[in-house]
Design a protein around this nucleic acid. Structure first.
Lengths: 229, 229
DNA sequence: TGTCACAATATGTCTATACTTATTTTTGTG
DNA sequence: CACAAAAATAAGTATAGACATATTGTGACA
Protein backbone atom coordinates (compact mmCIF):
# COMPACT_ATOMS: atom_id res chain seq x y z
CA UNK A 1 0.00 0.00 0.00
CA UNK A 2 2.95 2.28 0.61
CA UNK A 3 5.60 3.26 -1.85
CA UNK A 4 5.58 6.42 -3.92
CA UNK A 5 2.22 7.95 -4.69
CA UNK A 6 2.11 8.40 -8.43
CA UNK A 7 -0.67 10.05 -10.33
CA UNK A 8 -1.39 6.67 -11.86
CA UNK A 9 -1.92 5.15 -8.44
CA UNK A 10 -4.26 7.97 -7.50
CA UNK A 11 -6.15 7.45 -10.73
CA UNK A 12 -6.37 3.74 -10.04
CA UNK A 13 -7.80 4.31 -6.59
CA UNK A 14 -10.28 6.89 -7.86
CA UNK A 15 -11.32 4.49 -10.61
CA UNK A 16 -11.80 1.76 -8.04
CA UNK A 17 -14.06 3.97 -5.98
CA UNK A 18 -16.11 4.88 -9.02
CA UNK A 19 -16.50 1.24 -10.00
CA UNK A 20 -17.24 0.15 -6.46
CA UNK A 21 -19.85 2.90 -6.28
CA UNK A 22 -18.18 4.38 -3.22
CA UNK A 23 -18.52 7.43 -5.40
CA UNK A 24 -21.89 6.81 -7.02
CA UNK A 25 -22.78 8.19 -10.43
CA UNK A 26 -23.79 11.84 -10.26
CA UNK A 27 -22.31 12.40 -6.83
CA UNK A 28 -19.71 14.92 -5.91
CA UNK A 29 -16.34 13.55 -4.96
CA UNK A 30 -14.03 15.18 -2.43
CA UNK A 31 -12.05 18.22 -3.46
CA UNK A 32 -8.57 17.93 -4.83
CA UNK A 33 -7.09 19.39 -1.67
CA UNK A 34 -8.86 16.85 0.54
CA UNK A 35 -7.82 13.95 -1.64
CA UNK A 36 -4.27 15.21 -1.69
CA UNK A 37 -4.28 15.17 2.10
CA UNK A 38 -5.85 11.73 2.19
CA UNK A 39 -3.40 10.20 -0.26
CA UNK A 40 -0.47 12.11 1.16
CA UNK A 41 0.57 13.73 -2.06
CA UNK A 42 0.53 17.13 -3.70
CA UNK A 43 -2.64 18.58 -5.16
CA UNK A 44 -1.01 18.64 -8.59
CA UNK A 45 -0.75 14.86 -8.46
CA UNK A 46 -4.44 14.49 -7.68
CA UNK A 47 -5.20 17.02 -10.38
CA UNK A 48 -3.31 15.00 -12.97
CA UNK A 49 -5.16 11.84 -12.01
CA UNK A 50 -8.63 13.36 -12.00
CA UNK A 51 -7.97 15.28 -15.19
CA UNK A 52 -7.10 12.00 -16.85
CA UNK A 53 -10.32 10.39 -15.69
CA UNK A 54 -12.26 13.43 -16.85
CA UNK A 55 -10.69 13.16 -20.29
CA UNK A 56 -11.70 9.52 -20.37
CA UNK A 57 -15.25 10.63 -19.73
CA UNK A 58 -15.68 9.16 -16.26
CA UNK A 59 -15.69 12.42 -14.34
CA UNK A 60 -17.21 15.83 -14.96
CA UNK A 61 -15.18 18.70 -13.61
CA UNK A 62 -16.12 22.34 -13.32
CA UNK A 63 -14.44 25.21 -11.61
CA UNK A 64 -16.06 25.96 -8.34
CA UNK A 65 -18.64 23.31 -9.16
CA UNK A 66 -16.31 20.58 -8.07
CA UNK A 67 -15.91 17.13 -9.53
CA UNK A 68 -18.72 14.64 -9.96
CA UNK A 69 -18.97 11.15 -11.33
CA UNK A 70 -20.35 11.17 -14.83
CA UNK A 71 -23.90 9.89 -15.10
CA UNK A 72 -23.33 8.57 -18.58
CA UNK A 73 -19.76 7.37 -18.78
CA UNK A 74 -18.96 8.05 -22.39
CA UNK A 75 -16.87 5.42 -24.02
CA UNK A 76 -14.42 7.01 -26.36
CA UNK A 77 -13.33 4.64 -29.04
CA UNK A 78 -10.24 6.06 -30.68
CA UNK A 79 -8.69 4.54 -33.69
CA UNK A 80 -5.92 5.42 -35.95
CA UNK A 81 -6.59 6.37 -39.50
CA UNK A 82 -3.33 6.51 -41.24
CA UNK A 83 -1.94 5.23 -44.47
CA UNK A 84 -3.90 2.54 -46.26
CA UNK A 85 -0.71 0.77 -47.23
CA UNK A 86 0.11 0.33 -43.56
CA UNK A 87 -3.35 -1.01 -42.90
CA UNK A 88 -2.93 -3.63 -45.60
CA UNK A 89 0.57 -4.56 -44.51
CA UNK A 90 -0.53 -4.82 -40.89
CA UNK A 91 -3.04 -7.42 -42.02
CA UNK A 92 -0.18 -9.43 -43.45
CA UNK A 93 -0.88 -8.80 -47.11
CA UNK A 94 1.30 -7.55 -49.90
CA UNK A 95 0.45 -4.03 -50.96
CA UNK A 96 -0.43 -3.04 -54.50
CA UNK A 97 -1.46 0.27 -55.95
CA UNK A 98 -3.07 1.31 -59.18
CA UNK A 99 -3.94 4.81 -60.35
CA UNK A 100 -7.23 4.72 -62.24
CA UNK A 101 -7.69 8.35 -63.24
CA UNK A 102 -6.40 11.82 -62.48
CA UNK A 103 -8.40 14.67 -63.94
CA UNK A 104 -9.55 18.18 -63.17
CA UNK A 105 -13.25 18.73 -62.86
CA UNK A 106 -16.10 20.49 -61.21
CA UNK A 107 -16.95 18.43 -58.13
CA UNK A 108 -20.50 17.24 -57.51
CA UNK A 109 -22.74 19.20 -55.20
CA UNK A 110 -22.19 16.97 -52.19
CA UNK A 111 -18.45 17.46 -52.33
CA UNK A 112 -18.75 21.17 -53.01
CA UNK A 113 -20.96 21.56 -50.01
CA UNK A 114 -18.76 19.47 -47.76
CA UNK A 115 -15.72 21.56 -48.66
CA UNK A 116 -17.61 24.85 -48.63
CA UNK A 117 -16.62 25.77 -52.18
CA UNK A 118 -18.35 28.11 -54.60
CA UNK A 119 -19.84 27.00 -57.87
CA UNK A 120 -16.95 27.67 -60.17
CA UNK A 121 -14.04 26.07 -58.40
CA UNK A 122 -12.45 23.20 -60.24
CA UNK A 123 -10.72 20.48 -58.31
CA UNK A 124 -8.36 17.68 -59.03
CA UNK A 125 -10.11 14.33 -59.05
CA UNK A 126 -7.99 11.28 -58.34
CA UNK A 127 -9.24 7.72 -58.37
CA UNK A 128 -7.01 4.90 -57.31
CA UNK A 129 -7.24 1.32 -56.20
CA UNK A 130 -5.39 -0.19 -53.26
CA UNK A 131 -4.71 -3.90 -53.55
CA UNK A 132 -4.02 -6.58 -50.97
CA UNK A 133 -2.17 -9.58 -52.38
CA UNK A 134 -3.29 -8.45 -55.79
CA UNK A 135 -6.95 -8.39 -54.83
CA UNK A 136 -8.91 -5.14 -54.78
CA UNK A 137 -8.97 -3.87 -51.21
CA UNK A 138 -10.09 -0.27 -51.22
CA UNK A 139 -11.15 2.26 -53.81
CA UNK A 140 -9.99 5.81 -53.13
CA UNK A 141 -12.05 8.54 -54.78
CA UNK A 142 -10.55 11.87 -53.93
CA UNK A 143 -11.04 15.55 -54.67
CA UNK A 144 -8.05 17.76 -54.03
CA UNK A 145 -7.85 21.52 -53.85
CA UNK A 146 -5.41 22.31 -56.68
CA UNK A 147 -4.48 25.58 -55.04
CA UNK A 148 -2.78 23.65 -52.27
CA UNK A 149 -1.19 20.79 -54.18
CA UNK A 150 1.04 21.46 -57.14
CA UNK A 151 -0.06 19.83 -60.38
CA UNK A 152 3.47 18.46 -60.68
CA UNK A 153 2.84 15.98 -57.93
CA UNK A 154 2.09 12.67 -59.53
CA UNK A 155 0.06 9.96 -57.91
CA UNK A 156 1.24 7.32 -60.41
CA UNK A 157 3.28 5.36 -57.93
CA UNK A 158 2.46 6.90 -54.57
CA UNK A 159 -1.16 7.19 -53.56
CA UNK A 160 -2.68 10.56 -52.84
CA UNK A 161 -3.55 9.13 -49.46
CA UNK A 162 0.08 8.60 -48.61
CA UNK A 163 1.34 11.79 -50.22
CA UNK A 164 -1.14 13.95 -48.38
CA UNK A 165 -0.51 12.34 -45.03
CA UNK A 166 3.19 12.90 -45.43
CA UNK A 167 3.16 16.33 -47.00
CA UNK A 168 0.10 18.21 -45.93
CA UNK A 169 -0.37 19.35 -42.42
CA UNK A 170 -3.92 19.74 -41.44
CA UNK A 171 -5.84 21.08 -38.58
CA UNK A 172 -9.07 19.21 -38.71
CA UNK A 173 -11.83 17.53 -40.57
CA UNK A 174 -14.57 15.03 -40.14
CA UNK A 175 -15.29 11.41 -40.79
CA UNK A 176 -18.43 9.60 -41.74
CA UNK A 177 -18.62 5.82 -41.60
CA UNK A 178 -21.41 3.99 -43.35
CA UNK A 179 -22.42 0.96 -45.34
CA UNK A 180 -23.28 1.26 -49.00
CA UNK A 181 -24.37 -1.21 -51.67
CA UNK A 182 -21.98 -1.78 -54.57
CA UNK A 183 -23.25 -0.05 -57.67
CA UNK A 184 -22.28 -1.05 -61.17
CA UNK A 185 -18.96 0.75 -61.24
CA UNK A 186 -17.95 -0.19 -57.71
CA UNK A 187 -18.74 -3.85 -58.31
CA UNK A 188 -16.52 -3.88 -61.36
CA UNK A 189 -13.59 -2.10 -59.73
CA UNK A 190 -13.71 -3.97 -56.44
CA UNK A 191 -14.44 -7.27 -58.16
CA UNK A 192 -17.55 -8.09 -56.19
CA UNK A 193 -21.22 -8.72 -56.78
CA UNK A 194 -23.51 -5.82 -57.54
CA UNK A 195 -25.38 -4.77 -54.44
CA UNK A 196 -22.78 -6.25 -52.10
CA UNK A 197 -22.61 -4.53 -48.71
CA UNK A 198 -19.50 -2.33 -48.65
CA UNK A 199 -17.92 -0.47 -45.79
CA UNK A 200 -17.11 3.12 -46.65
CA UNK A 201 -15.55 6.21 -45.12
CA UNK A 202 -16.08 9.80 -46.19
CA UNK A 203 -13.41 12.08 -44.96
CA UNK A 204 -13.13 15.83 -45.31
CA UNK A 205 -9.96 17.66 -44.42
CA UNK A 206 -9.40 21.31 -43.66
CA UNK A 207 -6.39 23.38 -42.80
CA UNK A 208 -7.27 26.59 -41.04
CA UNK A 209 -10.65 26.94 -42.72
CA UNK A 210 -9.26 26.10 -46.16
CA UNK A 211 -10.53 22.93 -47.76
CA UNK A 212 -7.75 20.53 -48.63
CA UNK A 213 -9.36 17.35 -49.74
CA UNK A 214 -12.48 15.23 -49.63
CA UNK A 215 -12.21 11.52 -50.08
CA UNK A 216 -14.44 8.49 -50.17
CA UNK A 217 -12.80 5.21 -49.31
CA UNK A 218 -14.88 2.20 -50.28
CA UNK A 219 -13.64 -1.15 -49.08
CA UNK A 220 -14.07 -4.54 -50.69
CA UNK A 221 -16.59 -6.88 -48.99
CA UNK A 222 -15.40 -8.41 -45.75
CA UNK A 223 -13.47 -5.40 -44.53
CA UNK A 224 -13.57 -4.93 -40.78
CA UNK A 225 -12.35 -1.88 -38.95
CA UNK A 226 -10.99 -2.83 -35.56
CA UNK A 227 -10.21 -0.88 -32.44
CA UNK A 228 -9.54 -1.56 -28.79
CA UNK A 229 -10.42 0.48 -25.74
CA UNK B 1 3.68 37.93 -28.44
CA UNK B 2 3.89 38.76 -24.76
CA UNK B 3 1.41 37.97 -22.04
CA UNK B 4 1.47 34.86 -19.91
CA UNK B 5 3.05 31.78 -21.44
CA UNK B 6 0.48 29.02 -21.14
CA UNK B 7 1.02 25.43 -22.13
CA UNK B 8 -1.55 25.97 -24.84
CA UNK B 9 0.48 28.80 -26.33
CA UNK B 10 3.59 26.64 -26.27
CA UNK B 11 1.65 23.86 -27.96
CA UNK B 12 0.35 26.29 -30.57
CA UNK B 13 3.84 27.51 -31.38
CA UNK B 14 5.21 23.97 -31.55
CA UNK B 15 2.33 23.00 -33.82
CA UNK B 16 3.06 25.97 -36.05
CA UNK B 17 6.68 24.93 -36.40
CA UNK B 18 5.69 21.40 -37.26
CA UNK B 19 3.26 22.57 -39.89
CA UNK B 20 5.66 25.15 -41.27
CA UNK B 21 8.28 22.42 -41.47
CA UNK B 22 10.64 24.43 -39.33
CA UNK B 23 10.72 21.13 -37.53
CA UNK B 24 10.55 18.71 -40.46
CA UNK B 25 9.05 15.24 -40.13
CA UNK B 26 11.45 12.82 -38.53
CA UNK B 27 13.73 15.50 -37.16
CA UNK B 28 14.63 15.98 -33.56
CA UNK B 29 13.27 19.08 -31.91
CA UNK B 30 15.09 20.99 -29.15
CA UNK B 31 15.05 19.59 -25.64
CA UNK B 32 12.44 20.60 -23.16
CA UNK B 33 14.95 22.61 -21.19
CA UNK B 34 16.05 24.59 -24.23
CA UNK B 35 12.49 25.31 -25.28
CA UNK B 36 11.66 26.37 -21.75
CA UNK B 37 14.49 28.88 -21.88
CA UNK B 38 13.45 30.08 -25.32
CA UNK B 39 9.82 30.56 -24.38
CA UNK B 40 10.69 31.91 -20.97
CA UNK B 41 8.67 29.41 -19.02
CA UNK B 42 9.20 26.40 -16.78
CA UNK B 43 10.11 23.02 -18.21
CA UNK B 44 6.88 21.59 -16.84
CA UNK B 45 4.94 23.91 -19.10
CA UNK B 46 6.84 22.76 -22.17
CA UNK B 47 6.42 19.18 -21.02
CA UNK B 48 2.68 19.59 -20.82
CA UNK B 49 2.52 21.06 -24.30
CA UNK B 50 4.73 18.46 -25.96
CA UNK B 51 3.02 15.62 -24.11
CA UNK B 52 -0.26 16.82 -25.53
CA UNK B 53 1.11 16.84 -29.06
CA UNK B 54 2.59 13.41 -28.53
CA UNK B 55 -0.80 12.09 -27.41
CA UNK B 56 -2.30 13.57 -30.55
CA UNK B 57 0.21 11.56 -32.55
CA UNK B 58 2.24 14.44 -33.94
CA UNK B 59 5.36 13.86 -31.88
CA UNK B 60 7.26 10.79 -30.80
CA UNK B 61 8.92 11.08 -27.44
CA UNK B 62 11.37 8.75 -25.78
CA UNK B 63 13.42 9.10 -22.68
CA UNK B 64 16.94 10.01 -23.50
CA UNK B 65 16.03 9.68 -27.18
CA UNK B 66 14.52 13.14 -27.24
CA UNK B 67 11.49 14.30 -29.13
CA UNK B 68 11.05 13.99 -32.87
CA UNK B 69 8.34 14.92 -35.29
CA UNK B 70 6.29 11.90 -36.23
CA UNK B 71 6.93 10.64 -39.75
CA UNK B 72 3.42 9.35 -40.12
CA UNK B 73 1.18 11.67 -38.16
CA UNK B 74 -1.45 9.25 -36.99
CA UNK B 75 -4.90 10.62 -37.16
CA UNK B 76 -6.82 9.54 -34.15
CA UNK B 77 -10.50 9.61 -34.81
CA UNK B 78 -12.16 9.40 -31.44
CA UNK B 79 -15.85 9.10 -31.12
CA UNK B 80 -18.23 8.51 -28.37
CA UNK B 81 -20.08 5.27 -28.09
CA UNK B 82 -22.66 5.71 -25.47
CA UNK B 83 -26.31 5.03 -25.16
CA UNK B 84 -28.26 4.36 -28.32
CA UNK B 85 -31.18 6.36 -27.01
CA UNK B 86 -28.96 9.42 -26.82
CA UNK B 87 -27.74 8.82 -30.35
CA UNK B 88 -31.30 8.74 -31.62
CA UNK B 89 -32.35 11.75 -29.61
CA UNK B 90 -29.30 13.71 -30.76
CA UNK B 91 -30.47 13.14 -34.32
CA UNK B 92 -33.73 14.80 -33.39
CA UNK B 93 -35.91 11.71 -33.36
CA UNK B 94 -38.25 10.32 -30.80
CA UNK B 95 -36.92 7.20 -29.11
CA UNK B 96 -38.73 3.92 -28.98
CA UNK B 97 -37.73 0.57 -27.56
CA UNK B 98 -38.99 -2.93 -27.99
CA UNK B 99 -37.73 -6.10 -26.34
CA UNK B 100 -37.88 -8.98 -28.81
CA UNK B 101 -36.58 -11.90 -26.77
CA UNK B 102 -34.74 -12.68 -23.56
CA UNK B 103 -33.57 -16.25 -23.18
CA UNK B 104 -30.73 -18.31 -21.78
CA UNK B 105 -28.71 -20.30 -24.27
CA UNK B 106 -25.42 -21.66 -25.32
CA UNK B 107 -23.79 -18.95 -27.43
CA UNK B 108 -22.49 -19.70 -30.92
CA UNK B 109 -18.82 -20.42 -31.45
CA UNK B 110 -17.93 -16.94 -32.58
CA UNK B 111 -19.29 -15.37 -29.41
CA UNK B 112 -17.76 -18.04 -27.22
CA UNK B 113 -14.38 -17.42 -28.75
CA UNK B 114 -14.68 -13.66 -28.50
CA UNK B 115 -15.52 -13.89 -24.81
CA UNK B 116 -13.03 -16.67 -24.11
CA UNK B 117 -15.64 -18.99 -22.64
CA UNK B 118 -15.58 -22.75 -22.35
CA UNK B 119 -18.04 -25.04 -24.09
CA UNK B 120 -20.61 -25.45 -21.37
CA UNK B 121 -21.26 -21.90 -20.26
CA UNK B 122 -24.76 -20.68 -20.86
CA UNK B 123 -25.39 -17.04 -21.37
CA UNK B 124 -28.31 -14.72 -21.38
CA UNK B 125 -29.35 -13.74 -24.89
CA UNK B 126 -31.23 -10.49 -25.29
CA UNK B 127 -32.59 -9.17 -28.53
CA UNK B 128 -34.12 -5.74 -28.73
CA UNK B 129 -35.05 -3.14 -31.26
CA UNK B 130 -34.35 0.57 -30.95
CA UNK B 131 -36.74 2.81 -32.84
CA UNK B 132 -36.44 6.35 -34.14
CA UNK B 133 -39.78 8.06 -34.64
CA UNK B 134 -41.34 4.62 -34.62
CA UNK B 135 -39.12 3.34 -37.42
CA UNK B 136 -36.62 0.54 -36.78
CA UNK B 137 -33.24 2.13 -36.14
CA UNK B 138 -30.96 -0.47 -34.63
CA UNK B 139 -31.18 -4.12 -33.71
CA UNK B 140 -29.31 -5.05 -30.54
CA UNK B 141 -28.32 -8.72 -30.28
CA UNK B 142 -26.56 -9.24 -27.01
CA UNK B 143 -25.02 -12.04 -24.96
CA UNK B 144 -24.61 -11.33 -21.28
CA UNK B 145 -22.61 -13.21 -18.68
CA UNK B 146 -25.34 -14.26 -16.21
CA UNK B 147 -22.80 -14.54 -13.44
CA UNK B 148 -22.39 -10.77 -13.48
CA UNK B 149 -25.93 -9.61 -14.08
CA UNK B 150 -28.75 -10.77 -11.86
CA UNK B 151 -31.59 -12.51 -13.63
CA UNK B 152 -33.93 -10.14 -11.82
CA UNK B 153 -32.86 -7.29 -14.04
CA UNK B 154 -35.49 -6.89 -16.68
CA UNK B 155 -34.85 -5.36 -20.05
CA UNK B 156 -38.55 -4.91 -20.78
CA UNK B 157 -38.52 -1.15 -20.61
CA UNK B 158 -34.87 -0.22 -20.34
CA UNK B 159 -32.48 -1.58 -22.94
CA UNK B 160 -29.59 -3.78 -21.92
CA UNK B 161 -27.40 -1.22 -23.64
CA UNK B 162 -28.50 1.49 -21.26
CA UNK B 163 -28.60 -0.70 -18.19
CA UNK B 164 -25.07 -1.96 -18.72
CA UNK B 165 -23.64 1.48 -19.43
CA UNK B 166 -25.17 2.77 -16.24
CA UNK B 167 -24.57 -0.18 -13.96
CA UNK B 168 -21.55 -2.10 -15.09
CA UNK B 169 -18.12 -0.66 -14.90
CA UNK B 170 -15.73 -2.07 -17.36
CA UNK B 171 -12.09 -1.94 -18.02
CA UNK B 172 -11.85 -2.66 -21.68
CA UNK B 173 -13.04 -4.32 -24.79
CA UNK B 174 -12.88 -4.06 -28.52
CA UNK B 175 -14.96 -2.83 -31.38
CA UNK B 176 -15.34 -4.06 -34.92
CA UNK B 177 -17.11 -1.96 -37.53
CA UNK B 178 -18.23 -3.51 -40.76
CA UNK B 179 -20.88 -3.64 -43.44
CA UNK B 180 -23.16 -6.63 -43.75
CA UNK B 181 -26.01 -7.55 -46.07
CA UNK B 182 -29.45 -7.88 -44.54
CA UNK B 183 -30.42 -11.52 -44.26
CA UNK B 184 -33.97 -12.75 -44.07
CA UNK B 185 -34.44 -12.10 -40.36
CA UNK B 186 -32.66 -8.77 -40.33
CA UNK B 187 -34.66 -7.50 -43.29
CA UNK B 188 -37.88 -8.35 -41.50
CA UNK B 189 -36.92 -6.78 -38.17
CA UNK B 190 -35.34 -3.66 -39.62
CA UNK B 191 -38.05 -3.31 -42.24
CA UNK B 192 -35.73 -3.15 -45.21
CA UNK B 193 -35.02 -5.05 -48.39
CA UNK B 194 -33.18 -8.34 -48.22
CA UNK B 195 -29.54 -7.86 -49.08
CA UNK B 196 -29.57 -4.18 -48.14
CA UNK B 197 -26.21 -2.85 -47.00
CA UNK B 198 -26.27 -2.46 -43.24
CA UNK B 199 -23.78 -0.81 -40.93
CA UNK B 200 -22.92 -2.97 -37.94
CA UNK B 201 -20.80 -2.89 -34.82
CA UNK B 202 -19.53 -5.88 -32.85
CA UNK B 203 -18.52 -4.97 -29.37
CA UNK B 204 -16.96 -7.14 -26.71
CA UNK B 205 -16.62 -5.96 -23.15
CA UNK B 206 -14.39 -7.21 -20.37
CA UNK B 207 -13.91 -6.26 -16.78
CA UNK B 208 -10.56 -7.35 -15.41
CA UNK B 209 -10.28 -10.38 -17.66
CA UNK B 210 -13.88 -11.45 -17.05
CA UNK B 211 -16.19 -11.36 -20.03
CA UNK B 212 -19.22 -9.17 -19.44
CA UNK B 213 -21.05 -8.96 -22.70
CA UNK B 214 -20.79 -9.30 -26.44
CA UNK B 215 -23.17 -7.38 -28.64
CA UNK B 216 -23.90 -6.91 -32.29
CA UNK B 217 -25.60 -3.67 -33.22
CA UNK B 218 -27.04 -3.69 -36.72
CA UNK B 219 -28.35 -0.39 -38.01
CA UNK B 220 -31.12 0.23 -40.48
CA UNK B 221 -30.03 1.35 -43.96
CA UNK B 222 -28.83 4.93 -44.19
CA UNK B 223 -27.14 5.02 -40.83
CA UNK B 224 -24.04 7.18 -40.73
CA UNK B 225 -21.59 7.29 -37.89
CA UNK B 226 -20.05 10.73 -37.61
CA UNK B 227 -17.00 12.08 -35.88
CA UNK B 228 -14.87 15.19 -35.95
CA UNK B 229 -11.16 15.62 -35.43
C1' DT C 1 -39.08 40.59 -5.23
C1' DG C 2 -35.68 40.97 -8.61
C1' DT C 3 -31.02 41.92 -9.70
C1' DC C 4 -26.49 43.48 -9.47
C1' DA C 5 -22.10 43.52 -7.15
C1' DC C 6 -19.01 40.99 -4.53
C1' DA C 7 -17.05 37.35 -1.78
C1' DA C 8 -16.13 32.51 -1.58
C1' DT C 9 -14.53 28.43 -3.69
C1' DA C 10 -12.81 24.52 -6.61
C1' DT C 11 -10.41 23.68 -10.43
C1' DG C 12 -6.79 25.38 -13.85
C1' DT C 13 -2.30 26.60 -14.47
C1' DC C 14 2.69 28.18 -13.77
C1' DT C 15 7.18 28.00 -11.33
C1' DA C 16 11.34 26.22 -9.41
C1' DT C 17 13.43 22.35 -7.82
C1' DA C 18 14.44 17.72 -7.14
C1' DC C 19 14.52 13.17 -8.03
C1' DT C 20 13.41 8.89 -11.11
C1' DT C 21 13.69 6.04 -15.12
C1' DA C 22 14.58 4.49 -19.61
C1' DT C 23 17.90 4.56 -23.05
C1' DT C 24 22.07 5.75 -25.40
C1' DT C 25 26.90 6.52 -25.40
C1' DT C 26 31.14 5.87 -23.59
C1' DT C 27 34.50 3.47 -21.41
C1' DG C 28 36.85 -0.38 -19.64
C1' DT C 29 38.00 -5.19 -19.77
C1' DG C 30 38.57 -10.08 -21.26
C1' DC D 1 36.86 -7.06 -31.26
C1' DA D 2 33.07 -8.39 -28.41
C1' DC D 3 30.78 -7.42 -24.54
C1' DA D 4 29.63 -5.67 -20.23
C1' DA D 5 29.78 -1.96 -16.83
C1' DA D 6 29.43 2.88 -16.00
C1' DA D 7 28.35 7.61 -17.18
C1' DA D 8 25.47 10.79 -19.43
C1' DT D 9 21.15 12.36 -21.03
C1' DA D 10 16.31 13.61 -21.86
C1' DA D 11 11.93 12.79 -20.70
C1' DG D 12 8.73 11.44 -16.64
C1' DT D 13 7.07 12.63 -12.43
C1' DA D 14 6.39 14.71 -7.58
C1' DT D 15 6.06 18.90 -4.60
C1' DA D 16 5.00 23.27 -2.35
C1' DG D 17 3.49 27.47 -3.23
C1' DA D 18 1.26 31.01 -5.76
C1' DC D 19 -1.89 33.14 -8.74
C1' DA D 20 -5.79 32.84 -12.45
C1' DT D 21 -10.40 31.96 -13.74
C1' DA D 22 -14.81 30.40 -13.87
C1' DT D 23 -18.99 29.65 -11.11
C1' DT D 24 -21.79 29.62 -7.33
C1' DG D 25 -23.85 31.68 -3.61
C1' DT D 26 -25.09 35.66 -0.88
C1' DG D 27 -26.28 39.96 0.63
C1' DA D 28 -27.20 44.89 -0.31
C1' DC D 29 -30.05 47.77 -2.62
C1' DA D 30 -33.69 49.45 -5.47
Amino acid sequence: MDGPVTWQSVRAEALRRIRAREWPPGSQIPHEADLATEFGCARATVNRALRDLAEAGLLDRRRKGGTRVSLTPVRKATFEIAIIRHDIEARGHGYGYQLLSDTCDRPPDTIRKALKLDDTTRMRAVQALHLADGQPFCLEMRWINPALVSADVSFETTSANEWLVRNMSYSGGDFIFYATPADDALAKVLDCAQGAALFAIDRTTFSEQHPITAVTLTYAPGYRMFTQV
